[in-house]
């Protein structure tokens, strides 16, 4: 007997499919079209060339990558430490979650402005250093010739978004049955050995999710950079904005957007492969 065709799953999938098509897939295709096709409908690499040959392009690439390779390891280690602390179920560890998660409720632009207020010429940092007598006049931290703008953005991003990583890791840690850790204790493993040989391998699926999420967000970093460093620093997303907003050239802006998409996709595939959790190892 033939099974009757089941409509229900497709009907249930329909709303999210329509949503994704309308607001993600379609604009994405349009962006690609904008990047590779001029006003007359001719396919061209002209906009890609203009992007690559622009004075700011390699600066933006460099800064974006510097931010990624500093922020992500830093955030990961911090988030892991915080997650382990929360999961240790010490007295009051629930409180940590709330405190850690607080910056999540602040928009990235507002977070950027907070850190700008700290690092600017007449900001909190200079005021404190001056009143402590360490400086005799305000130091200009956000000068593009120094590394300080990068440091300020890294601090702002770490402060703002570490808890996203932590929340993912805490959820992962709580899904690991305690007996594994206890068995390791009984058979002679110390704290670090247990972390390295038992907890982290079992946490691998969560680590994967956290890293993918975080790296994709890092490629898109924009508002914090703009707020903290202004013109002193530029990143890929900021260039896309500048080409669209200031130079009124949607084609080159779309070329940047396409580049960000390709890079995000590339790193996602990289993470999925290097941190692959094979079927037989699943908990």
């Amino acid at each position: 007997m033939r099974r009757r065709f089941q409509w229900e799953p497709y009907i249930l999938l329909l709303p999210s499919t329509v949503y994704l098509m309308l607001f993600f897939a379609w604009p994405m295709l349009q962006a690609f079209e904008l990047a590779f096709r001029d006003e007359n409908g001719v396919w061209t690499l002209e906009f890609i060339q203009r992007m690559v040959n622009d004075v700011n392009f390699w600066k933006a690439v460099r800064t974006t990558f510097i931010l990624i390779v500093t922020i992500i390891p830093l955030q990961f280690l911090l988030a892991l430490a915080m997650a382990l602390l929360v999961n240790a179920k010490l007295r009051g560890s629930d409180l940590f979650v709330y405190i850690y998660a607080l910056p999540l409720a602040i928009s990235d632009l507002a977070a950027g402005i907070i850190w700008f207020a700290i690092f600017t010429e007449r900001g909190y940092l200079n005021t404190v250093l001056y009143s402590l007598g360490i400086l005799d006049q305000p130091y200009i931290f956000l000068n593009y010739q120094t590394a300080w703008p990068v440091v300020a953005v890294v601090l702002a991003e770490v402060w703002r978004a570490t808890s996203i990583v932590m929340v993912v890791l805490v959820a992962g840690l709580q899904a690991i049955p305690r007996e594994y850790d206890e068995a390791a204790q009984v058979f002679g493993a110390g704290w670090f050995t247990r972390l390295w040989r038992v907890t982290l391998p079992l946490l691998r699926p969560s680590i994967q999710v956290a890293l993918i999420l975080r790296t994709i967000l890092a490629f898109q970093v924009f508002a914090v950079v703009l707020a903290v460093a202004g013109q002193a620093l530029t990143v890929l997303a900021a260039e896309a904005y500048r080409w669209y907003g200031s130079w009124r050239n949607p084609h080159v802006a779309a070329a940047y957007a396409a580049l960000i998409l390709v890079l995000s996709l590339g790193t996602t595939v990289f993470y999925l492969r290097t941190l692959q959790v094979s079927e037989e190892v699943r908990v």
Partner: peptide, 20 residues
């Protein structure tokens, strides 16, 4: 003393055999 200094072995109800 912590478990690892007690020189014991244990079999758990859920086995706790490391899946990885």
């Amino acid at each position: 003393l912590p478990p690892r200094q007690r020189h014991i072995a244990m079999v758990f109800q859920s086995y706790a055999v490391f899946p990885h």
